[in-house]
Protein backbone atom coordinates (compact mmCIF):
# COMPACT_ATOMS: atom_id res chain seq x y z
CA UNK A 1 0.00 0.00 0.00
CA UNK A 2 1.03 3.59 -0.53
CA UNK A 3 1.25 5.90 2.43
CA UNK A 4 2.29 9.44 3.15
CA UNK A 5 4.74 9.95 5.97
CA UNK A 6 4.95 13.43 7.32
CA UNK A 7 8.06 14.00 9.39
CA UNK A 8 8.96 16.94 11.56
CA UNK A 9 12.48 17.87 10.53
CA UNK A 10 15.05 20.03 12.25
CA UNK A 11 18.69 20.55 11.41
CA UNK A 12 20.10 23.64 13.09
CA UNK A 13 23.25 23.46 10.96
CA UNK A 14 21.17 24.24 7.91
CA UNK A 15 18.04 26.01 9.04
CA UNK A 16 17.17 27.53 12.40
CA UNK A 17 13.49 26.51 12.31
CA UNK A 18 11.86 23.14 12.31
CA UNK A 19 9.69 22.26 9.32
CA UNK A 20 7.54 19.38 8.14
CA UNK A 21 8.39 17.26 5.14
CA UNK A 22 6.23 14.67 3.42
CA UNK A 23 7.38 11.46 1.81
CA UNK A 24 5.22 9.14 -0.17
CA UNK A 25 6.17 5.47 -0.50
CA UNK A 26 4.98 1.91 -0.94
CA UNK A 27 4.98 -0.22 2.18
CA UNK A 28 3.55 -3.46 3.54
CA UNK A 29 0.98 -3.22 6.33
CA UNK A 30 3.21 -5.48 8.42
CA UNK A 31 6.31 -3.28 8.03
CA UNK A 32 7.55 -1.59 11.15
CA UNK A 33 7.49 2.21 11.13
CA UNK A 34 11.24 1.88 11.67
CA UNK A 35 11.48 -0.04 8.35
CA UNK A 36 9.60 2.84 6.72
CA UNK A 37 12.06 5.41 8.09
CA UNK A 38 15.02 3.27 6.96
CA UNK A 39 13.50 3.01 3.50
CA UNK A 40 13.08 6.79 3.30
CA UNK A 41 16.67 7.28 4.39
CA UNK A 42 17.95 4.77 1.83
CA UNK A 43 15.86 5.83 -1.13
CA UNK A 44 14.67 9.38 -0.69
CA UNK A 45 16.66 11.45 1.77
CA UNK A 46 19.88 10.14 3.27
CA UNK A 47 20.05 13.06 5.68
CA UNK A 48 17.01 11.93 7.65
CA UNK A 49 18.27 11.38 11.20
CA UNK A 50 16.96 8.97 13.84
CA UNK A 51 18.37 6.42 16.25
CA UNK A 52 17.93 2.70 15.93
CA UNK A 53 19.52 -0.51 17.03
CA UNK A 54 17.70 -3.71 18.04
CA UNK A 55 14.63 -3.25 15.79
CA UNK A 56 12.41 -5.30 18.10
CA UNK A 57 11.55 -3.12 21.04
CA UNK A 58 14.22 -4.01 23.56
CA UNK A 59 16.95 -1.35 23.33
CA UNK A 60 14.98 1.88 23.69
CA UNK A 61 16.66 3.76 20.81
CA UNK A 62 13.70 4.82 18.72
CA UNK A 63 10.96 6.28 20.89
CA UNK A 64 9.21 9.04 18.95
CA UNK A 65 5.78 10.50 18.53
CA UNK A 66 3.79 8.64 15.92
CA UNK A 67 0.33 9.95 15.14
CA UNK A 68 0.32 11.99 18.30
CA UNK A 69 1.46 9.30 20.73
CA UNK A 70 4.84 8.23 22.09
CA UNK A 71 5.76 4.85 20.61
CA UNK A 72 8.78 2.83 19.58
CA UNK A 73 9.08 2.99 15.78
CA UNK A 74 10.25 -0.63 15.72
CA UNK A 75 7.31 -1.87 17.75
CA UNK A 76 4.69 -0.02 15.72
CA UNK A 77 3.53 -1.69 12.54
CA UNK A 78 2.21 0.34 9.63
CA UNK A 79 -1.20 -1.31 10.03
CA UNK A 80 -1.39 -0.04 13.62
CA UNK A 81 -1.34 3.55 12.38
CA UNK A 82 -2.45 3.50 8.72
CA UNK A 83 -5.19 1.36 7.21
CA UNK A 84 -5.91 2.42 3.63
CA UNK A 85 -4.01 3.86 0.69
CA UNK A 86 -2.84 7.43 1.15
CA UNK A 87 -3.30 7.34 4.90
CA UNK A 88 -0.86 9.65 6.64
CA UNK A 89 1.56 8.76 9.36
CA UNK A 90 2.82 11.72 11.32
CA UNK A 91 6.20 11.37 12.96
CA UNK A 92 7.72 13.86 15.40
CA UNK A 93 10.56 13.85 17.92
CA UNK A 94 9.80 13.32 21.62
CA UNK A 95 8.72 16.30 23.71
CA UNK A 96 10.38 17.97 26.70
CA UNK A 97 13.90 17.23 25.49
CA UNK A 98 15.96 19.44 23.15
CA UNK A 99 15.97 18.24 19.53
CA UNK A 100 19.43 17.42 18.25
CA UNK A 101 18.52 16.67 14.68
CA UNK A 102 15.22 15.49 13.16
CA UNK A 103 13.95 12.65 15.37
CA UNK A 104 16.98 12.47 17.65
CA UNK A 105 16.54 14.24 20.98
CA UNK A 106 18.97 14.96 23.79
CA UNK A 107 18.19 12.55 26.64
CA UNK A 108 20.83 14.09 28.89
CA UNK A 109 18.40 15.40 31.50
CA UNK A 110 16.46 12.16 31.42
CA UNK A 111 19.59 10.16 32.27
CA UNK A 112 20.69 12.74 34.89
CA UNK A 113 17.37 12.21 36.63
CA UNK A 114 17.83 8.47 36.49
CA UNK A 115 21.23 8.81 38.14
CA UNK A 116 19.71 11.00 40.87
CA UNK A 117 17.75 8.16 42.42
CA UNK A 118 20.92 6.05 42.95
CA UNK A 119 19.84 3.35 40.51
CA UNK A 120 21.85 0.48 41.94
CA UNK A 121 21.36 -2.10 44.64
CA UNK A 122 22.43 -0.92 48.07
CA UNK A 123 22.59 -4.27 49.85
CA UNK A 124 21.38 -4.36 53.41
CA UNK A 125 23.61 -7.31 54.27
CA UNK A 126 27.03 -8.49 53.22
CA UNK A 127 26.73 -10.97 50.39
CA UNK A 128 26.65 -14.66 51.36
CA UNK A 129 28.91 -17.15 49.64
CA UNK A 130 26.15 -18.20 47.29
CA UNK A 131 23.12 -16.14 46.28
CA UNK A 132 20.96 -13.97 48.55
CA UNK A 133 17.77 -15.88 49.24
CA UNK A 134 14.65 -14.27 47.82
CA UNK A 135 11.30 -15.92 47.16
CA UNK A 136 9.70 -15.80 43.73
CA UNK A 137 6.89 -13.81 45.35
CA UNK A 138 9.32 -11.24 46.75
CA UNK A 139 10.89 -10.96 43.33
CA UNK A 140 7.53 -10.34 41.73
CA UNK A 141 7.06 -7.29 43.95
CA UNK A 142 9.66 -5.36 42.01
CA UNK A 143 9.72 -7.19 38.69
CA UNK A 144 7.48 -4.80 36.76
CA UNK A 145 9.86 -1.80 36.67
CA UNK A 146 12.89 -3.99 35.92
CA UNK A 147 11.54 -4.20 32.36
CA UNK A 148 12.38 -0.53 31.71
CA UNK A 149 14.56 0.11 28.65
CA UNK A 150 15.09 3.82 29.42
CA UNK A 151 13.50 4.91 26.16
CA UNK A 152 12.09 8.14 27.71
CA UNK A 153 8.67 7.81 26.07
CA UNK A 154 7.10 8.29 29.50
CA UNK A 155 9.17 11.39 30.16
CA UNK A 156 7.94 12.93 26.91
CA UNK A 157 4.31 12.13 27.73
CA UNK A 158 4.36 13.53 31.26
CA UNK A 159 2.28 16.71 31.69
CA UNK A 160 4.12 17.63 34.90
CA UNK A 161 7.46 17.60 33.10
CA UNK A 162 6.02 19.47 30.14
CA UNK A 163 4.48 22.22 32.28
CA UNK A 164 7.82 22.62 34.01
CA UNK A 165 6.27 24.43 36.99
CA UNK A 166 7.68 22.05 39.55
CA UNK A 167 10.75 19.90 39.44
CA UNK A 168 10.18 16.19 38.85
CA UNK A 169 12.68 13.44 38.13
CA UNK A 170 10.02 11.93 35.88
CA UNK A 171 8.15 8.65 35.55
CA UNK A 172 11.02 6.34 34.59
CA UNK A 173 13.33 7.48 37.38
CA UNK A 174 10.45 7.16 39.85
CA UNK A 175 9.66 3.65 38.68
CA UNK A 176 13.32 2.74 39.09
CA UNK A 177 13.27 4.17 42.60
CA UNK A 178 10.42 1.76 43.31
CA UNK A 179 12.38 -1.09 41.72
CA UNK A 180 15.16 -0.75 44.30
CA UNK A 181 13.06 0.30 47.27
CA UNK A 182 10.96 -2.89 47.00
CA UNK A 183 13.84 -5.30 46.44
CA UNK A 184 14.22 -7.38 49.63
CA UNK A 185 18.01 -7.39 49.15
CA UNK A 186 18.17 -3.59 49.28
CA UNK A 187 18.31 -1.21 52.24
CA UNK A 188 14.87 -0.24 50.97
CA UNK A 189 12.81 2.77 51.88
CA UNK A 190 14.43 3.14 55.27
CA UNK A 191 17.87 3.44 53.75
CA UNK A 192 16.84 5.53 50.77
CA UNK A 193 14.46 8.00 52.36
CA UNK A 194 16.75 10.93 51.70
CA UNK A 195 16.65 10.51 47.92
CA UNK A 196 13.06 9.26 47.79
CA UNK A 197 11.26 11.73 49.98
CA UNK A 198 12.09 14.90 48.06
CA UNK A 199 9.77 17.40 46.38
CA UNK A 200 11.08 16.38 42.94
CA UNK A 201 10.63 12.65 43.65
CA UNK A 202 7.41 10.63 43.49
CA UNK A 203 5.67 13.41 45.44
CA UNK A 204 5.62 15.52 42.28
CA UNK A 205 3.49 13.07 40.31
CA UNK A 206 -0.09 14.26 39.77
CA UNK A 207 -1.44 10.92 38.55
CA UNK A 208 -2.16 11.80 34.95
CA UNK A 209 -1.44 8.18 33.91
CA UNK A 210 -0.07 9.27 30.48
CA UNK A 211 3.21 7.46 31.15
CA UNK A 212 1.45 4.21 31.91
CA UNK A 213 -0.50 4.52 28.66
CA UNK A 214 2.55 5.05 26.46
CA UNK A 215 5.16 2.79 28.09
CA UNK A 216 6.20 0.31 25.39
CA UNK A 217 7.18 -2.23 28.05
CA UNK A 218 3.76 -2.11 29.65
CA UNK A 219 5.12 -1.00 33.01
CA UNK A 220 2.41 0.20 35.37
CA UNK A 221 4.40 3.30 36.14
CA UNK A 222 1.76 5.29 37.95
CA UNK A 223 0.85 2.32 40.10
CA UNK A 224 4.52 1.90 41.04
CA UNK A 225 4.70 5.59 41.91
CA UNK A 226 1.57 5.44 44.05
CA UNK A 227 2.70 2.34 45.91
CA UNK A 228 6.00 4.03 46.64
CA UNK A 229 4.24 7.21 47.79
CA UNK A 230 2.10 5.18 50.20
CA UNK A 231 5.05 3.21 51.52
CA UNK A 232 7.06 6.36 52.15
CA UNK A 233 4.12 7.82 54.05
CA UNK A 234 3.65 4.67 56.08
CA UNK A 235 7.35 4.51 56.83
CA UNK A 236 7.39 8.09 58.10
CA UNK A 237 4.37 7.49 60.30
CA UNK A 238 5.78 4.38 61.88
Amino acid sequence: MRIVVSIKRYNPEKKPQAYTQEFSLDVKPTDRVLDVLVSIKENQDSSLTFRKSCAHGVCGSDAMIINGQERLACKTLVKDVAQVDNDRIEVEPLRSMPIQRDLAVDQGVFFDNYRKIDPFLRPKEKPPKEEYRQSQKEREQFEDPTKCILCSACYSSCPVIEAGEKKFVGPAASAQAARFAFDTRDVGIAGRLEELDTPDGVAACDNHFNCTKVCPRGIKITKNINTLKKSIKKHKES
Binding site: F120, L121, P123, P127, E131, Y132, Q134, S135, Q136, R139, F142, E143, T146, F180, D183, R185, D186
Partner: peptide
Protein backbone atom coordinates in the same frame (compact mmCIF):
# COMPACT_ATOMS: atom_id res chain seq x y z
CA UNK B 1 24.85 -9.77 44.66
CA UNK B 2 24.79 -6.65 42.54
CA UNK B 3 21.04 -6.85 42.15
CA UNK B 4 20.30 -8.98 39.12
CA UNK B 5 16.69 -10.16 39.52
CA UNK B 6 16.99 -13.84 38.65
CA UNK B 7 13.91 -16.04 38.70
CA UNK B 8 13.84 -18.09 41.90
Amino acid sequence: HNGLPFNR
